[in-house]
Design a protein around this nucleic acid. Structure first.
Lengths: 188, 188
DNA sequence: GTCTATATCAAGATAGAC
DNA sequence: GTCTATCTTGATATAGAC
């Protein structure tokens, strides 16, 4: 699935980047193949060689979103000390990184898919169900785990729609509060 | 602003309802004036009399979303015992009601607006900034208030995109956990 | 206040050259 | 693998009747 070659990005990657940026800038519903092609530095024909339909492009955006979060989570697993609510900590950290880092635009794939055809979110639905199952099965404090997860999703949603009122310091404060919630739980 | 007359809904209300439903069903990007008109039980011409452009319709959807949450919050204010993190409790309760009740569809106005023109979310941006200011100024435990707020937004986002994995019981559990977080805070 | 008819335009997709 | 040219559809918006 990883198609980046050393040095140069593949056309597919350039196209997905271009599409993600455009969704942020002009809105998911205004995403046109022509605009994506121009931004990615090729023609409509070239784009349609890589993604034969617009739906295929949107599917690609969703799949990259899923792959990115999954990869981030697994990378964190190696660096994270085991302990209370481990899975929830991995999951929230990975999502948090996604919505604050430079891969932030990738989340807009969700908006693009929702816009065109809500069923394109099916793969994401499955991931979310699996995440809930995992949290249920492994969390020492499920209430805290659910709230932490949802809070990161809320933040992510705000960033995705570009309506977040939070500064970098705010986000850091939120990150720490989530960490505290997961390790200490809700007070009695 | 409230234009409902006793008995019959105004055309405006019927149109806004129809648009909200359609966004849930076919995706924000597929929302067409013709489909809205048909669902609302009038013709394209009749629709365009009430909302002269598609943007005006989307603005109407966003405004109704804002008005609804605001009204819900003020209604709750009368019934809620004052106490720890009052504003956060009002705000989360109002949002929670929106995303689980029958007014759920109204939230999809956000998707419709994002889809067509992200700047249509400007009024919502203002409300969110004001909410953050209020929480900052009044919360006994700001960390808890922020997490609770974000958690409801996360839940709302899942429901809005129809990717929520939660059952009614799950949502009730989440509601209680948020209440507990706001009244008790994060453990030490 | 709501209807029909129509002008106008833009977007997705195809075909075939290079 | 990428390009240009073209076909076709469908959506917004206008004009004017009822």
């Amino acid at each position: 699935m990883l198609e980046s070659v050393r040095g140069r990005k593949s056309s597919r990657e350039k196209i997905l980047d271009a599409a993600a940026e455009l969704v942020s800038e002009i809105g998911s519903g205004r995403l046109t193949l022509e605009a994506v092609a121009e931004r990615a530095g090729l023609s409509k024909g070239g784009l349609l060689y890589n993604f034969p339909t617009k739906e295929a492009l949107l599917q690609g955006m969703i799949q990259r979103l899923i792959d990115q979060v999954s990869a981030e989570k697994e990378a964190l697993r190696g660096q994270t000390a085991s302990g209370r609510n481990l899975e929830a900590r991995l999951c929230t950290s990975a999502l948090f990184k996604m919505c604050s880092g430079k891969t932030k635009d990738i989340a807009t794939g969700m908006l693009a898919a929702t816009s065109e055809n809500p069923r394109l979110l099916d793969p994401l639905r499955q991931v979310i169900r699996d995440t809930l199952d995992t949290l249920r099965a492994t969390s020492e404090d499920l209430d805290a785990a659910l709230l932490a997860w949802l809070a990161v999703e809320g933040l992510s949603s705000y960033e995705m729609h570009d309506i977040s009122p939070f500064s970098d310091e705010d986000r850091e404060r939120i990150r720490k509060a989530i960490e505290r919630l997961l390790s200490k739980g809700i007070a009695e």
